[in-house]
Simulated assay, not measured.
Amino acid sequence: MHMIRVEPRCRVIIDNDWAGDPDGLVALAHHALSPANRIVAVTASLTNPMFGPPGGRAQAGGHLAEDLLRVLKLPELPAVHAGPDAPFIGQPRANPAARAIVDAAEAGGDLPLILVCAGPLTNVADALLLDPAVARSLTLAWVGGAARDDEEYNYFTDPAAADYVLGNRDLAVWQFPAETYRKIVAPVAELDVEFRNAGPAGAWLWEHFNSLEVPGFVKFGPLWCLGDSAPLVVTGLDDSTSTYVETSAAPQRRTYTSVDTRLIMADFAAKLQLQG
């Protein structure tokens, strides 16, 4: 039996620092299993030095994303393109990730295009610098920023990139700041149960949560933040149970003040079980 039919509502580019916190990989699996969105490109960004020397980390993250997509065994999923390991420099630098974003924007299509970034905005900044027309071809859904930006991981990993992207007057942005995304949490016990009993993809995710290398000062508690899944409410699901504030002027700037955690987590658990 097939799942009840769901029509695609958008095309998505997924950008993340896949070699960092594994909640990004959960979000990638969720998008890949969601028929309401169609993935047209996946790109890998640099990681914060807290996860180790930055050299080769974007490429390593790209390999992780590719491996997960292979485990999911879904048809017609795109290749993963890695960006640079260095922060934004404010000058054009053609790299595979930026080029993939530009190509996806130029390809057009019958559905709106959403660029989901749940990491530093390095690849997005490089793409906008490479081709400014990208800004008018898509909406950026960014997991990042906070009331104090310098205290938020995705911002301070590459503040120059964030300032450049958010300062673009042609770019529509749907932002999920720290005050919102940090409330998307799941009990570790629940994740253990779901991953262990959801086939090869669940086992793959379980292994990466258990093998994450972090600095000694990081201590894990009974809850795990899955903040990178926040944009699912505007891609694979619906934001009818979320709240936000937005500007009336174009381009649209929207800040989500709450998202439905139960909706996101229940949907992912069900899709992982069906896939397994």
Rank of each mutant, 00 (worst) to 15 (best):
N16W: 15
A135K: 01
C225F: 03
A79H: 14
V40T: 02
I89T: 13
V116T: 05
T122Y: 13
P231T: 12
D238L: 01
E106F: 07
P22V: 06
E66C: 12
A201W: 07
Q275D: 03
V193K: 11
R70E: 13
L263T: 11
T255P: 00
D163Y: 01
G119L: 13
V193Y: 11
L28S: 09
K183G: 12
F156G: 01
F268Q: 04
I184L: 15
L28T: 03
L33K: 00
A32H: 03
L171A: 01
L121V: 01
N210Y: 10
D67G: 12
L237V: 10
M265V: 11
L212C: 08
S211T: 15
M3P: 01
S248V: 03
R99C: 04
L237I: 13
G167Q: 04
A79D: 13
K73S: 15
L212F: 07
K219W: 08
M265H: 15
Q59V: 09
G145T: 09
T122A: 07
G167H: 12
G119F: 06
R148N: 12
D85S: 02
P87Y: 03
L130P: 00
V233D: 03
P187M: 14
N95P: 00
L226G: 05
G83T: 08
R169D: 14
G216I: 02
P87H: 07
A147V: 15
L33A: 13
T243K: 10
V143K: 06
Q275Y: 04
D267S: 15
A161M: 03
N197P: 00
G61P: 00
A172W: 00
A36Q: 12
V233P: 00
Y164C: 12
P75T: 02
S229D: 05
A27H: 02
A27L: 05
C10I: 09
L64R: 15
R169P: 02
H2G: 05
P96N: 12
F156E: 05
A107P: 01
I39S: 10
V173W: 03
G61S: 04
P132F: 10
T157S: 09
N210A: 08
P78T: 04
I4M: 06
P8F: 09
A269G: 10
W204D: 05
Y256F: 14
P78E: 06
V185Q: 12
E66L: 12
Y153K: 14
G109E: 08
T122F: 04
A105Q: 06
T43Y: 03
V42R: 08
L212D: 06
A160D: 02
L72F: 08
L166T: 10
I101W: 05
R57D: 04
L115C: 13
F209E: 07
D67S: 15
L113I: 09
T139L: 11
P49E: 07
C117V: 09
V245C: 13
P96R: 09
G145L: 12
V80N: 11
A250H: 01
A79W: 11
A27F: 11
I114R: 06
R9H: 15
M1A: 07
A82K: 02
G145I: 08
A94V: 04
P96C: 04
A133H: 08
C10L: 10
P177W: 14
S248C: 07
E76R: 13
L69N: 07
Q275H: 15
E106C: 06
W18G: 10
T247M: 08
A104L: 13
V6Q: 13
F268M: 13
G52N: 00
I184E: 06
M265I: 07
N48L: 11
V234Y: 11
G144E: 06
V102L: 03
